[in-house]
């Protein structure tokens, strides 16, 4: 109960964590930082889900998310050539897009709290921030780690909002299977890129 209150009262920290995580995955080139961003994101997801769910059940989100990060981290992504971004044009464009997401979230968050009774404003902010960042990320990425990370980000944002209305253990389990499945699929695809580029 005390822990749950702590999460509730300090939920703004989780939103800041999610903002940093989303920014890391979206803006940074290094795969290490992106996977670190993913781990940070699932910490924030756990925090916000714990407001509505028992702590043990909410911890599933973090454990599964970290496992997904670990799977992607060992998938051979380190063996692929790094992607480069043009400085400063591309960076400015992406930063502006990220800013646009934040502005859109500030307008939409009150609507979401209205849609889902019992939704903490921080949950609406966190969920929408991840969905928005993930969608923008998906829009600029066509393949590779970026696509998988963006899908996972969108899904994590949805999970925060869905946790407000659904507390079923089976749903939590199936969503965990989907998250891990996405990570495994992503790892498989990344492994295939490495194999074919080396074979070529």
């Amino acid at each position: 109960m005390i822990v749950s209150n702590f999460f509730d009262q300090n939920a703004i920290i989780a939103v800041i964590l999610l903002g940093i995580a989303g920014g890391l995955m979206f803006l940074v080139n290094s795969w290490r930082w992106r996977v670190a961003g993913l781990a940070l994101m699932y910490l924030g997801v756990f925090w916000l889900v714990a407001i509505s769910w028992p702590l043990g059940l909410a911890a599933i989100k973090m454990v599964v998310g970290w496992m997904a990060g670990a799977i992607l981290g060992v998938s051979g992504v380190n063996l692929l050539p790094p992607t480069r971004r043009r400085w400063p044009t591309e960076w400015i464009f992406l930063a502006l897009a990220f800013l646009l997401v934040i502005v859109a979230v500030s307008r939409l968050a009150p609507v979401i709290t209205d849609w889902f009774p019992g939704c903490h404003p921080a949950q609406a902010w966190g969920g929408l921030l991840l969905i928005g960042t993930g969608l923008i990320h998906l829009g600029v990425a066509s393949r590779g780690l970026r696509t998988i990370l963006s899908i996972l980000t969108i899904l994590a944002g949805f999970e925060i909002l869905y946790a407000v209305v659904e507390t079923s253990t089976l749903v939590a389990g199936l969503l965990a299977v989907v998250t891990l499945g996405l990570a495994l699929t992503g790892a498989y695809l990344l492994g295939n890129i490495y194999e074919t580029e080396n074979a070529g």
Partner: peptide
């Protein structure tokens, strides 16, 4: 996904 893209195929 793995059935559509067998090992060794470029995604």
């Amino acid at each position: 996904v793995p059935f559509l893209l067998p090992p060794g195929s470029q995604p």
